[in-house]
Amino acid sequence: MSGEESASALRAEGVTKAYDGRVIIQDISIHLETGELVCLLGVSGAGKTTLFHTLSGLERPEAGRVLLQGEDITGRPGKISYMLQRDLLLPHKKIPDNVALPLVIRGEKPRAAREKALGYFAQFGLEGTQDKYPAQLSGGMRQRAALLRTFLGSQGVVLLDEPFSALDALTKREIHRWYMGMMDQLQLTTLFITHDIDEAILLSDRIYILSGQPGRISAGLTIQPPRPRDLEFSLCGEFLAYKKQILSLLERQG
C-alpha cells in the first residue's frame, strides 16, 4: 500500500498551518494522481490559499508533510509550479521573458529559455506578442501568458488559484475546453481553487471540499462520467445532483 501511495503525483499528509498561533488549516490530507484534475472548493476564509502556499513550499507547515512523487518537499519552493490569483506578469519584461522566467530562475540561459517559451506561443494563442509588454495585452491574453509561464515552470504538478475567475462567461467556456486539451497533451496534474461550483463539476475528476475554521477537508467526491465532458453535461440530472450535494456539504459546514 505504501509503495502505491508514494507513486502519487502529489500528496499532503496531515498538514497543519498556523499564523501567529491561529490555526488556519488543520490535518489536511489530500492526494493527486498523475494526470488528474482536482478541484479544491470552499467558502472564503477556509484557508484555500494558505493550503496552496504550504503545498508550494512558500510556507512551512507546523505539522505534516508534502510529497512530490514520493519525495519530501515540505517547505521547499521551486518544485511545484504555482499560479497565484493575479496574473503577476512583470511589467518590465516582454511577454517571452515573462513566460520564460521560471526556466531562467532555474539556471537556464535566457536566450534558450526564451526560445523554448516561444515554441508554445501558437498553442497558447499568444502569437504576435513576442515584442509586447504585459501592459499592451488584454486580460484574457495576460491570463494565457501566465498559464504558459506556469506550465513551463512545472515538473508535472500545477497549482492554480482561481485561474479563470477574472474571465467573462464566454471566454471562460473557451478557456475550459482549451485547458483540458492542453492538460492531456502536456500530461499535467492540476489542483485548482475555484468559487464556481459549476466550473468545479464540469472540469474535475475529483473535488475536495475545504470548510470550517480552522479549515479541514470535509468531503471528497469523484465526478462521473470521466472527462472530457461537454456543455450538455451541465444540463443533465447527474450534474444537478452533484451540485445539490456540494451545496448541502458547503452549507452544513458554512
Binding site: 502556499h53 512558500l58 519552493p77 509550479s81 504555482y82 503577476l88 512583470l90 521560471p102 530562475i105
Partner: peptide, 28 residues
C-alpha cells in the same frame, strides 16, 4: 509587489534573483 515576490519564491528564486528580476526593476 509582495505577491510577485511570492511568485518568484515559488519558482525557487534566490534573494539575489528576486532583487535582479523584481525589486531593482521596480525601483528603477
Amino acid at each position: 509587489d509582495k505577491a510577485a515576490a511570492d511568485l518568484l519564491r515559488s519558482m525557487g528564486a534566490s534573494r539575489w534573483q528576486i532583487f535582479r528580476h523584481l525589486e531593482f526593476p521596480t525601483a528603477l
